[in-house]
Amino acid sequence: MPNAIRNFSKFRYLLYELIKKDIKLKYRSSVLGVLWTLLEPLLTMIVLTVVFSGLLGKGDDNFPVYILCGRLLYSFFSAGTKTALKSIRKNSSTIKKVYVPKYMYPLASTLSSYIIFLISLIVLVGVALYEQVKITGAIFGAIFPLIMIFFLTLGVGLILAVLDVFFRDLEYLWTVILMLIMYTCAIFYKVESLKSVTNEWIFKINPLYSLIVNFRNSIFGRPLDMYHFWYALGFSAAVMLFGCVLFFKKQDRFILYI
């Protein structure tokens, strides 16, 4: 274990460089550059508001903010897992030639998505102020879902990165699974308002939905929902643990397949 820490500290500059590279290259050839981090969620929010604003009733939460909460969290999860999934294969030429702790690649890609996500939260603050949503002390509860979603994404990302080395199909399969996750996140509607919820359990087992529920609760000044809190915490921790074990067990075999 002390060995692993020493190794990490030796390569922490690499982690920094990899994150910088991801963010820099993402916006390099675009005119607006990093502004897109803010514009993209804002524009999607407008589109979703225009199309779906009838889905929430009068007494419900402010619709644009409601959408934005769900969308920001989901898009981080989606972007983070997608880049982590490809991270090992994308860097295969380096992995074959230079020794670097391999977890650096999925870790760096998840972290860079996370940083972009944190920046994009500015949009949420802006829209919440503009729509005059009352912010209370409950806002500090948002810290929990924000931390948990990072570990959930990293854990899933590690598992996907390992599996993708051995099975290339995963990339396509994962986009389909992401779609299922997106629709069970209730980004632009309320689960309670669905006319006949035949499969309510599917929302209950989606950890991302649990995170979004509690994130919204904090933004709109409500206390955290304890079922969703514990479920998300347990799920994130389990996935993170499993991801690490799987990754470290299989990492020596990567080079034979990439």
Binding site: Y16, E17, K21, L25
Partner: peptide, 22 residues
């Protein structure tokens, strides 16, 4: 081998250097 093709030479100095543990 550790170069990123979209990165400039200067940026790659930092990237590749950090890969070698500098």
């Amino acid at each position: 081998a550790g170069f990123d093709k979209d990165y400039t030479g200067a940026e790659n100095i930092y990237l590749y250097g950090s890969m070698l543990g500098y």
